[in-house]
């Protein structure tokens, strides 16, 4: 039902790790699980969508759960030093962080 142009980029045929499309999908899925919102609503997140400090449900305990779930589903390790305000402020920040971690990993 998306009105954005269809992307040819899909991970199922790629041998070079997780594609951006798949990272985006997994990350939105984690956020919708943590916030208890419909996947459709999470699908509408843009890079500018505010997270920590914008969504009252997302307190430190919820953020910790979110990061731990990201580690599991994206197969990354998130260190103390990785966690800063910028990374958590917007959806785009979190997505860039996840992509960087996967490339690094």
């Amino acid at each position: 039902m998306s009105i954005t142009p269809a992307s040819n980029e899909d991970d199922d045929h790629s041998g070079i790790g997780m594609s951006r499309v798949r990272i985006d999908r997994e990350l939105k899925s984690v956020i919708s699980d943590v916030l208890g919102i419909d996947p459709e609503q999470a699908a509408e997140f843009t890079p500018e969508t505010g997270l920590f400090g914008h969504l009252p449900e997302l307190d430190s305990m919820a953020v910790a759960g979110l990061l731990t779930e990201m580690e599991d589903r994206l197969d990354i390790v998130i260190d103390d030093d990785d966690v800063d305000g910028e990374m958590l402020e917007t959806y785009g920040g979190l997505l860039s962080f996840a992509e960087a971690k996967i490339i690094e990993g």
């Binding site: 430190s60 305990m61 953020v63 910790a64 759960g65 990061l67 731990t68 103390d80 966690v83």
Partner: peptide, 9 residues
């Protein structure tokens, strides 16, 4: 791990 992370945040 999750609980310690919540505390550091």
């Amino acid at each position: 791990r999750s609980m310690i992370r919540a505390r550091t945040i």
